[in-house]
Design a protein around this nucleic acid. Structure first.
Lengths: 346, 346
DNA sequence: CTGAAAGCGCTAACAC
DNA sequence: GTGTTAGCGCTTTCAG
């Protein structure tokens, strides 16, 4: 086989519908119809067009098509942070729902910067995506409201309220309550929490924790140490909690990463999980499933969140002025090996 | 403040350049010029146009612009798997280099399915993105070759060779050698490896390991257990290695996740890291940095990989027919707490 | 069934 | 400086 070098690297201009028409000996309307699988084309000409298109390697120009059709069949998704695996699964859900409706998903990352997100939003609007999904957005309600007047939008995991903007999220209040209920059912009373600072969903998780504690009748044992959804934050928060008297027999951390931090702090204090102390996380990330972490945690139906956000958009394409819907999905608990029956309780 | 309900949710049609021109009392060329910051416009009219555009909330239609300019200023990135954090940082690098050159990045995920990737590629071509970057692609050389005749392409972390297609990757052979050299310098001789099966870079990492072992003069101790880049694979591979006589005093796992599996297997065998046995991973993922993992591992300059891929594309915009360049970046070792001096050696 | 023609919103000569 | 005009590649009436 001879060495081909770069002889093929000369770039070829994209053939147009006119080139195909000329080669097939038909008008460009016919080519257009064949490309769109319009049935009103004779089989002979259809064949000819297909052959010509194949020969030229013709690819329809989506830009031109979008211009005339006034729609792009693209959905823009702006993710606050692609480093957060949380969003990968949401994207899967969005992608699945989009694909089955004939839409293509375009993702841009805000990289956690509000200015970047604003730029990304602007780009999506200029690109005339048919709809936009914001995932974990930090954008202001005003910005979102303004954009939503121009293009259908849906928001994921963020408590934005704007007219005509649908939202989808997991019920974090409920999720935290699940964690507390599980621990209480194991006989724990001294259940403390490491919170998530200003992070997304942190307020709800705190509320759910406190609410559940009260409801179970152990409200007097509520202790919340500050955290920030990081491993370090979880470590510090848990360290502080462990110094308290009576020492908690269970810790609910606002997310898995901080739960891992708590696990470290507990080990450093010479205690053993789950014998001396139980730990529950939140989010059921890949971390929680690691063998030697094996963390009991609250799972969010991420894939489904993505699907529902996309479906909300599709609904809005049909009825643009419908009232905004705010869907709250049910989390569930995944019990692993960091929780056990309490050895002492109030 | 009155409750506004959904009264604002009526969607507004995008105003066009003509609407702006009418409102500003100028011709549409003037509007076009102002939008493109063409200096040949009188200040009075420029003001008028800006005001009108602001009032109408005019956003240029990128679709129309792309059609006439024959370029979109979009770069398509096809990522094999957004669940792999490895790619998040590469995307950051691409994004940074793209932004500073005035390009917008559009990401689609192949979700590890070749058919999906092919669809994504097709979409990008139809969208007429100015360039395409493949990250971790499973696409066939033939597919890539064909597409690259239509649009500039660059490939990341994949050993594709096609005319006019630039590639960027880390030198995995070298990375594996770094791991071995580090262990050898600590006095280890019985250094075994858990490989990555058919995964990306696995072959190179095996080669680097074997090569380095020979070079150091301990080629007779080469032992490679099968793995597959998963935690479970690492566990099984390491378990097998631990049964060998003489038992290895060090294990190099082909990636961090399987290194963690190895760590578990070692603990289960009642041995202690790094006292009894040292472990080195590869990739320096977030996992490796976890406190109670604290894995010594080989770091790849991911951000830089992304940057260079984007730069390759930019170069190619200038000189479309240039010879393909294949850049190999240097990895380096991040020493943490899973490696220590050998207590016995051959 | 097929072709001709009129745009989609914008840019880029080219006149004025 | 500014307006006019001819497209970019495609879809979509509307005649034939």
């Amino acid at each position: 086989m001879p060495l081909t070098l770069d002889q093929h690297s000369r770039r070829v201009k994209h053939p147009t519908i006119i080139d195909v028409a000329a080669l097939a000996g038909v008008s460009k309307s016919v080519v257009s119809r064949v490309m769109r699988e319009d049935p009103t084309v004779g089989p002979a000409r259809r064949e000819a067009v297909m052959a010509a298109a194949g020969e030229l390697g013709y690819r329809p120009n989506a830009v031109a098509r979008s211009l005339v059709q006034q729609r792009t069949f693209n959905i823009g998704v702006i993710v606050s942070d692609l480093h957060n695996l949380f969003f990968a699964e949401i994207l899967d859900g969005i992608g699945a729902a989009a694909a089955s409706a004939g839409y293509q998903v375009l993702v841009t990352s805000g990289s956690l910067l509000q200015s970047n997100e604003a730029r990304a939003l602007e780009t999506m609007v200029q690109l005339r995506t048919d709809g936009i999904i914001l995932a974990g957005s930090q954008l202001s309600t005003e910005t979102i409201r303004a954009a939503s007047r121009r293009v259908p939008m849906a928001v994921v995991t963020s408590a934005i309220r704007a007219p005509g903007v649908d939202t989808v999220a997991t019920d974090d209040v409920r999720g935290a309550a699940l964690a507390v209920a599980h621990l209480a059912s194991l006989g724990h009373g001294w259940i403390s929490m490491v919170d998530g600072g200003t992070g997304a969903g942190s307020a709800e998780r705190c509320e759910g924790y406190a609410q559940a504690m009260h409801q179970i009748g152990i409200g007097q044992y509520i202790r919340i140490a500050p955290g920030d959804y990081t491993e370090e934050g979880g470590h510090q928060g848990a360290t502080r909690l462990l110094e308290m008297k009576p020492r908690p027999t269970a810790i609910y951390a606002a997310n898995d990463l901080s739960a891992i931090g708590a696990l470290n702090a507990i080990a450093e204090a010479g205690l053993e999980v789950p014998r001396d102390i139980s730990v529950v996380g939140h989010d059921n990330t890949a971390l929680a499933a690691l063998r030697h972490v094996s963390l009991t945690t609250v799972h969010q139906p991420r894939f489904q969140i993505g699907e529902m956000a996309m479906r909300a958009l599709l609904r809005r394409f049909e009825r643009p002025t419908a009232r905004a819907r705010h869907e709250l999905l049910e989390p569930h608990l995944v019990v692993r090996e960091t929780t056990a029956r309490a050895r002492s309780s109030p």
